[in-house]
Write a protein that binds this DNA or RNA. Structure first.
Lengths: 150, 150
DNA sequence: TTAAGTGCAAATATTTTGCTGTCAC
DNA sequence: GTGACAGCAAAATATTTGCACTTAA
């Protein structure tokens, strides 16, 4: 993926100014939330956190900004097997795609990076002559702890 | 996956009677839709098609039946990169998982089966000690035709 | 200055639920 | 006969949109 390897804090904000995308108080708050999030926030959580930075942030601004970030390939949208409701989760895009594993019993989300996944995507691009822009591998099942308990 | 290799028409209905799940007129209509669908129907389409078989079928019965089928591992739920709205698509589960590729320009959905995908899942089960029940690999990008046009 | 962005409220879209009556077994 | 299932309408959840006001560049 074409993003730089280094994880500069404020990279999303830097991208905005490079592209001449207008920076507002509200966007700054939302970007800050996305940049400092450890992971997987849904729209409601992003709104709540952004409101702490700038209480004027509105729900619709969150959705509009998420859409903007998604269009620019700066965040990934996840469904995480819809374990908690039907909404989406968002996380900052990193260079290496990772697999999300959701435990159907305890709801824990785990991540996994694999060379095989990279090979698989290469195979798809080659065999299907398909230019991959975004990929999402989500797995539902039972984590070690929950398997032991059952 | 533990389902038989052969694609018997009426397999979903057979599963129901084996498990002692009550068969109703409405469920029969919905199962028939799922069994004869070429692929990827959303809830609204399933409702429309089921109503043609049995006009009494209600929207909520469709959702309740889809949930039942999902719980029993008989169908897969897909998001298909949310190219058309935010709803879900459903398809009968087959033995071999397949990758769904959605063209972000023309909206076409393509499928791909790969041994590498099977290897990847085995790696996850082994390395993460995670029991996979369902997996979903969705890819967004540009198909050959749309790449040429652009 | 002015086009882009915002909050607010209302609209949409999708899915779920409570309730009362019906039907499969 | 009875417990599971149905339709209906209303609620819940998630996201989008129209519009008048505000603000970044």
């Amino acid at each position: 993926m074409p993003l730089p390897q280094t994880e500069i804090p404020g990279r999303l904000q830097a991208y905005f100014s490079e592209r001449g995308i207008r920076m507002t108080q509200q966007r700054r708050a939302i970007l800050q939330v996305m940049e400092t999030a450890s992971k997987h926030l849904d729209a409601a959580q992003i709104l709540r956190k952004a409101k702490k930075i700038d209480p004027s942030v509105d729900r619709s601004t969150v959705y509009r900004t998420l859409k903007l970030l998604k269009r620019n390939g700066l965040i990934d949208e996840l469904d995480l097997m819809h374990i908690h409701g039907e909404g989406h989760y968002y996380e900052r895009k990193v260079n290496r795609d990772h697999i999300h594993m959701a435990c159907l019993r305890c709801g824990k989300i785990m991540e996994f990076v694999s060379d095989i996944f990279e090979n698989l995507k290469q195979q798809v691009e080659k065999d299907c002559r398909f230019k991959i822009m975004v990929s999402r591998l989500e797995i539902g099942g039972y984590c070690t702890a929950c398997r032991a308990q059952q």
